[in-house]
């Protein structure tokens, strides 16, 4: 799999989840919450995969089971071809936690150095990576300040830097853009796309649907621990049987004639495609539907109708 080519839709999967279930139990061992229910997923090499869902839908639980932080009650996980509890898989994974769970008494330099050491990197490599990543996330001006003095956006940036310290093949991002200003959000999104261009696989979950729509190749929507929707973002958002025309600016007269003209004259046609629904619409529709008809699962490409 080292021969991974950029933008590949080959069958090689980086993450395989089969029948994954997680039940939280109380002190007496009684089932309290079914956080994830018979989830099956596959993430292909080189894609950006988005996990969507409202609060408590099980997306973070799923990510944490992927990482081995939580143990599945049932089901199987294969990540980079290894079991979730195998620490050696972590060599090739980068993880940005939901909130940046970093050591607040360390500064940016020390943080990256520390995580670098955990990968048994040599001092020279650590220095090189450190400099590059701090530069990349734009924290050069604050690299000697303790993290407890950082703003939320800065913490996200250093969190992202530590996730990439080992140049991972698989990057798992939990809410990568939360707390960032629009400019920062743009930068992070660009970075995610760049990671894909470098052949890395990205699994992210987010509340910010616009971000997901902007970067993800495929998404899964979870609700109540169950998978509701899974598929290509393009396919999911495309409205079939309709056409969308985008034209150059028309004068008012031409505009009045546009319907007739379209039939008779060949006006210059800039693009022609199906009109795209907003991801927000799709998301809300899915949630509404799921509440109304629990247990329903949509076939690939099928979307709930409003």
């Amino acid at each position: 799999m080292e021969l991974g080519v950029s933008i590949s839709m080959s069958a090689e999967s980086v993450v395989e989840i089969r029948n994954l279930t997680k039940i939280y139990r109380d002190f007496w061992g009684r089932a309290k919450v079914k956080a994830v229910n018979s989830l099956s997923l596959e993430v292909k090499k080189g894609e950006i995969f988005g996990l969507l869902g409202p609060n408590g839908s099980g997306k973070t639980t799923t990510l944490k089971m992927l990482l081995g932080l939580l143990f599945p009650t049932e089901g199987e996980i294969k990540i980079l071809g290894k079991q979730a509890h195998d620490v050696s898989k972590n060599e090739r994974i980068g993880y940005l936690p939901e909130e940046s769970y970093l050591y607040r008494f360390l500064n940016a330099d020390e943080t990256l150095d520390f995580y670098g050491r955990l990968f048994n990197m040599s001092a020279a490599v650590r220095k090189e990576r450190k400099d590059k990543l701090i530069e990349m996330v734009g924290l050069n001006y604050a690299r000697r300040r303790q993290l407890k003095e950082y703003s939320k956006g800065m913490t996200r940036r250093i969190g992202l830097a530590q996730a990439l310290i080992n140049d991972p093949e698989l990057v798992i991002l939990d809410e990568p853009t939360s707390g960032m200003d629009p400019l920062g959000t743009r930068e992070v999104k660009d970075l995610i796309l760049k990671l894909r261009d470098q052949g890395k696989t990205v699994v992210m979950c987010s509340h910010l649907l616009q971000d997901v729509q902007d970067v993800c190749d495929r998404i899964a929507i979870l609700y109540g621990g169950e998978l509701k929707v899974l598929g290509d973002v393009k396919d999911l958002l495309q409205s079939k049987g309709e056409t969308q025309l985008i034209t150059s600016k028309l004068d008012p007269a031409a505009q009045a004639e546009v319907e007739a003209v379209l039939k008779k004259h060949g006006a210059s046609l800039h693009s022609s495609s199906s009109p795209v629904v907003n991801l927000e619409d799709l998301f809300l529709r899915t949630i509404e539907e799921s509440k109304a008809r629990p247990g329903r699962r949509y076939a690939p490409g099928e979307t709930p109708k409003a």
């Binding site: 936690p97 909130e99 769970y101």
Partner: peptide, 14 residues
């Protein structure tokens, strides 16, 4: 409790 250990154990740390 601070969950800083989470980040650590997602690295190849036994």
């Amino acid at each position: 409790k601070d969950r800083s250990l989470h980040t650590v154990v997602t690295k190849p740390v036994r």
